[in-house]
Design a binder for these strands. Structure first.
Lengths: 208, 208
DNA sequence: CGCATTATTGCAATGACTGCAACATCAGGG
DNA sequence: CCCTGATGTTGCAGTCATTGCAATAATGCG
């Protein structure tokens, strides 16, 4: 990908990356609110105006790379098994993301997570991303079960999945003790999420 | 409540209400982004600076009154039955809110909902409110089951409940056809939500 | 009436974000 | 190599949300 670009595009990509790097470094050290666009562009050695050529807003620089493995999730949803129920399909899709090679607790993820958790302005942005992704999943799920699923049911189902995950992840990232434990063994994160999902749903199933 | 306030406080309350009314009217007619604080304060006949004496931000004026019946929900959570599981308690709490006299589809609610659904900036704010409420519910649930529930499980459980509701409500409010049907019969809203919750959870339960 | 509170206001400043036009640089053809 | 068009970068001016500070106006009370 990077190779077949002309010098021009490579330069542009370099500028963009410089902005991302400078921004994350400054956000991490000074805090998001205390860092101005001018600070970031100065560190990246470009004009302030240039920032907005690459990113639509200050927070966007943090959500540069693809959020989660949304595409993978959607792909799985597109191929339901013969006798698979929507809920089972969602669970399978979730598991395939969980066991993909995604780095759930890398250096970069931690910094980002910390920043988001302690900056209300960023929480808003993160949530917007989640909502967008959710819509995408609903669409995929409806495509998979065009006859047996109505929009409300599909949206509620996806909402339950995403809600469970967001609830669990929020605590996993914010609780200091938990975070420390997870930092020691990154694999642990998968186990925690797996437990959260399965035990939660088991509980919910026992309410009818 | 309103009666025992001195003239001073009544006047302040009137100013605040004038700002809320002016804001909602202008947002509804011109749109949120196209309405400036100056517009609002002009319509309310106060100084622009006064707006920020009453509200912390532009969007706050829309979330003035208590969001949902959070207190009622929390109250129910505080009194679990003898053999009631957390999931059953949550379901019961949800139902008592659902069947309280809350107006789920009033004029004001509709305007607000429409504005939020079509304004990304507001979606973020709304969800932040939801997340705050979610934390409160998690705390209440943990208090109710101090021995059998850990923070991650509680948060995941509450996340599932709230996620289901948000998913369903989003569609119920945004789908034009559904919205029209619901407008005709406000009671219908309760039935839709009841169905969304119970059928979703039933599906999820069948995944173990 | 005079004083302590408290609501409202004006002013100035910061910082995110945008439109526009100028400028610099790269790609390709002649 | 030069010309030309496309594209990345920049400067400038302006809008708007938001805030701190200090002055002003009302109000409550002794």
């Amino acid at each position: 990908m990077t190779g077949n670009m002309g010098l021009r595009e490579r330069k542009k990509a370099r500028t963009r990356q410089a902005l991302v790097d400078a921004a994350i470094a400054l956000f991490a050290s000074k805090g998001y609110d205390e860092t101005t666009i001018a600070d970031v562009t100065a560190a990246a050695d470009v004009s302030p105006r240039t920032f907005f050529v690459h990113f639509a807003s200050k927070e966007d620089v943090l959500f540069d790379d693809p959020p989660l493995k949304l595409d993978l999730f959607t792909d799985v949803l597109a191929h339901p098994g013969p006798d698979e129920t929507p809920a089972q399909l969602l669970l399978r899709a979730f598991r395939s993301v969980l066991h993909s090679d995604t780095d759930l607790m890398g250096q970069s993820e931690r910094i980002r997570a910390d920043l988001i958790l302690q900056t209300p302005a960023l929480q808003a942005g993160a949530v917007r991303k989640v909502l967008e992704g959710q819509r995408q999943l609903v669409r995929a799920l409806l495509d998979a079960y065009p006859d047996t699923l109505d929009p409300v049911a599909a949206s509620a189902l996806v909402g339950a999945v995403v809600g469970t995950l967001v609830g669990a992840i929020t605590v996993l990232y914010s609780d200091a003790a938990v975070a420390a434990r997870l930092a020691a063994d990154p694999q642990q994160m998968r186990a925690e999420l797996e437990t959260a999902i399965t035990s939660t749903w088991q509980h919910l199933g026992g309410t009818g």
